[in-house]
């Protein structure tokens, strides 16, 4: 039983993007609570994510950004509340469950293996075997096929700097490694991709490349959640911005409705977002 949509202020959404919000949300959280003993991690948070949008989640340290994301991706289980994927209630026990349901996460610590090549990293724990008895009996990997498809996934995201899929990841720059991690999420995340601080360790050019990839994921029709401390990156890439504060949601704004200063003011509690005009 799908929940009713959270209110949206369509005025601040560019007209050519409004159709995205006509559909039902791909991922929803309702009244999500997490409590460890008497420490409240999440205090009844609601969230809607639509296909074809980038929803940024910002907030001060300890505001519950990571906790919220870990709930949605199966790393934590909420004490109370519901999560809906594609209109159906889901109950993720482990990250693997969320992944199998079509939610991919790009972790801050990257989760790539330096010694393995790019194709092996893209297909790690999802290896494809050769057709026929070579695959079914001898369990041989389809290395050529995986390298070819890995190349396709990387090119689909508009990354030209990575050509040879048999190159070990340790030979890549930080931005290229991040690109590999995003490409893996894009290749397997059929519904939602969550990125945790994807530009934190990158230089200006490489951040630009990763932000382009994020927009590409959105344009490919995925729902994208972007967690970031970097306000210029958020304001550049996000369609809507969910502000976490003290375990709750302080409001949802758009880059058009509020500037960065106002966003930070809401984030830190210096300014209150009037609840009757959510964006």
């Amino acid at each position: 039983m799908a929940p009713s949509k959270l209110p949206l202020a369509v005025d601040h959404i560019p007209s050519e993007k409004r159709h995205v919000y006509d559909a039902e949300p791909i991922l929803s959280g309702r009244d999500l609570r997490i409590q460890w003993g008497h420490v409240v991690g999440l205090d009844g948070v609601n969230l809607d994510l639509y296909k074809g949008e980038v929803l940024a989640v910002i907030g001060d340290n300890g505001a519950g950004k990571s906790t919220l994301i870990k709930c949605l991706t199966g790393a934590y289980q909420p004490t109370a509340g519901q999560i809906y994927l594609d209109g159906k209630e889901v109950d993720f026990k482990r990250p693997q469950d969320a992944r199998e349901a079509g939610i991919e996460t790009v972790y801050q610590q990257l989760a790539v293996i330096p010694a393995l090549d790019i194709a092996s990293n893209l297909y790690l724990a999802r290896e494809e075997r050769r057709p026929g008895p070579l695959g079914s009996v001898l369990r041989m990997l389809d290395k050529k096929g995986m390298a070819k498809r890995a190349g396709d996934s990387v090119r689909e995201l508009g990354i030209q700097t990575i050509q040879n899929m048999n190159l070990a990841v340790e030979n890549l720059s930080g931005g290229q490694r991040q690109a590999v991690a995003v490409a893996r999420a894009a290749a397997f995340g059929s519904k939602v991709v969550v990125l945790d601080e994807p530009t934190a360790a990158l230089g200006v050019k490489e951040s630009g490349m990763v932000l382009d990839m994020i927009k590409q994921l959105r344009d490919n029709g995925l729902g994208v959640i972007l967690i970031s401390h970097n306000m210029p990156h958020v304001w550049e890439a996000a369609d809507r911005i969910h502000i976490q504060r003290l375990g709750g949601c302080a409001g949802v704004i758009t880059p058009a409705s509020h500037d960065m200063g106002e966003g930070v003011a809401i984030m830190t509690g210096a300014k209150k977002l009037t609840q009757d005009t959510p964006a």
Partner: peptide
């Protein structure tokens, strides 16, 4: 090479 990354990758 990296047990934690391997685990996060599944």
């Amino acid at each position: 090479d990296d047990p934690e990354s391997a685990r996060l990758s599944g």
